[in-house]
Amino acid sequence: MQFLADNFGLLWDAFLTTLSLSLLAGLLALVLGTLLAAARVSPIPPLRGLATFYVETFRNTPLTVVFFFMIFGLPQIDFILGFFTGAVLSLGLYTAAFVCEAVRSGINAVSAGQAEASRAIGLTFGQSLREVVLPQAFRTVVPPLGNVFIAMVKNSSIAAGFATSELSSLLPRLVNADAGQLTAVLLGVVIAYMLITLPLAFGVHRLERRVAILR
């Protein structure tokens, strides 16, 4: 454990990078995914088509390929992103497709009578979605959204292969480490990931219980 203590600063910086990456990518995924879900249930066919194309493209593309495109592909057309910015966009844009499907399932679970009643009192589609449907949909999809975001935190490890100093980037530095050093750092990395995912899972569980009462 002395080796871990000697390299605590490095582990702490990697932990903060992973946490920042997860928070920023999660915020992007939540906002974009909600907009995509709204587009997928929109009465405008071209909008539905574009949203469906986005979701199906990202859901069926490996995340590593998305990273390659953002980090190495875009510079070929003179659009250069920093490694961290590219990692946030890659992870956020990819996760948004899964957020979209989770939110859309919640929208579809809301009784059709709710939307019909809102239209009957003069609300537009956008107003009905924002004021009536989405609040109920989000209460339904708290557990699946939580799973999506926990998976996103673990997927952030891919950023280590693209010069982003997150937690998993520490592991290649241990090629010549002895068994004790390797075990210590692996344990440190696992604990660091759990410090992010376990509170997230606990928060999701608490929120699920709270909205269940509200329903």
Rank of each mutant, 00 (worst) to 15 (best):
L129T: 10
S165T: 06
R119Y: 15
L129V: 14
L123D: 03
A159D: 05
P143W: 02
T124D: 01
N176C: 04
S157A: 14
R139P: 04
N147K: 00
V142W: 06
I158W: 13
V175P: 00
Y193S: 04
L182Q: 08
V132T: 10
V175C: 01
S168K: 13
E131H: 15
P135V: 11
I191K: 07
P172Q: 07
G188W: 12
A160H: 05
S157E: 03
L198W: 05
L167I: 08
G188P: 09
A137H: 05
I158T: 13
L171F: 13
G180W: 15
V142L: 02
A137R: 10
M152H: 03
T124W: 02
G126H: 11
V189P: 10
N147L: 01
V190W: 13
N147D: 02
L195G: 03
F162P: 03
A120K: 08
L186C: 11
F162C: 08
L170R: 15
A137M: 07
L134I: 12
A163P: 01
I196L: 15
L182I: 13
V190I: 15
A120V: 06
R130T: 09
S168F: 14
P143V: 01
L187D: 00
N155K: 05
G188R: 12
K154Y: 15
L198I: 15
L170Q: 13
A120M: 12
P144E: 01
T140H: 13
L145N: 08
V148A: 02
A184Q: 07
T124R: 10
A201H: 13
V153W: 03
V141S: 00
I196K: 00
E131T: 15
L174P: 13
T124N: 02
L167K: 11
R119I: 02
A151P: 00
V190Q: 04
I121G: 07
V133R: 09
V153N: 02
E166D: 06
R119W: 10
P199S: 09
A159Q: 03
F149Y: 12
T197S: 01
L182Y: 08
F125Y: 15
A201I: 09
V153Q: 05
L174W: 15
F162A: 09
G203E: 07
L123W: 07
P172W: 09
F125K: 07
V132M: 11
D178M: 10
N176E: 12
P144S: 02
R139E: 01
T197D: 00
